[in-house]
Computed example of a mutant assay.
Amino acid sequence: MKVSAIAKILGGRVKGDDSIEIESIASFDSATKTDIAFCEGTTCKSTPTKAGCVIATIDSGFESAPAIIFVDKPKFSFAIIANELRNKTKPTSGIHSNSIISDSAVIHTSVSVGSFCTIEAGAKIGAGTTLMPGSYVGADVTIGENCLVYPNVTVGEKCVIGDDVVLYSGVVIGTDGFGYVRDGERIIKFPQIGKVVIGNRVEIGANSCVDRGALSDTEIGDDTKIDNQVQVGHNVSIGRRVLIAAHAGISGSVVIEDDVVIGGKAGLGDHVTIKQGAVLGGGSGVYPGKIVPAGFWAGSPIQQIREFKKKEALIRSLSKHNKEIRTLLSKF
Rank of each mutant, 00 (worst) to 15 (best):
Tyr168Thr: 06
Pro301Arg: 01
Ile55Trp: 13
Val261Trp: 13
Ile250Glu: 03
Arg316Asp: 11
Ala246Cys: 06
Ser330His: 07
Ala121Gly: 10
Trp297Val: 05
Thr129Pro: 03
Val141Gly: 06
Gly277Thr: 00
Val255Cys: 04
Ser216Lys: 14
Gly289Asp: 02
Gly249Tyr: 04
Arg316Glu: 14
Ala79Ser: 15
Ser64Phe: 10
Lys15Pro: 05
Arg212Cys: 04
Gln229Val: 13
Pro48Ile: 10
Gln231Tyr: 07
Thr92Asp: 14
Ile173Tyr: 08
Ser77Ile: 09
Lys320Asp: 11
Phe78Arg: 12
Ile193Val: 15
Ala139Thr: 11
Val260Met: 02
Lys8Thr: 14
Val230Lys: 07
Ile25Asn: 12
Ala294Thr: 13
Gly269Met: 06
Cys44Tyr: 00
Thr129Gln: 01
Pro74Thr: 04
Asn200Val: 04
Gln231Ser: 11
Val232Ala: 03
Ser110Tyr: 03
Asp140Asn: 15
Phe190Gln: 12
Ala313Trp: 00
Ile125Pro: 03
Val113Arg: 07
Cys209Arg: 06
Asp18Ile: 01
Val3Met: 08
Pro293Phe: 04
Val254Trp: 01
Ile20Val: 08
Ile204Gln: 01
Met1His: 06
Glu219Thr: 15
Gly179His: 01
Val202Ser: 06
Gly11Glu: 10
Ala121Val: 11
Pro91His: 09
Gly170Ala: 00
Lys265Gly: 10
Gly199Ser: 05
Thr92Phe: 13
Asp258Ser: 00
Ser19Gly: 12
Ser169Asn: 02
Pro293Lys: 04
Pro66Glu: 09
Thr47Asn: 11
Ile244Lys: 08
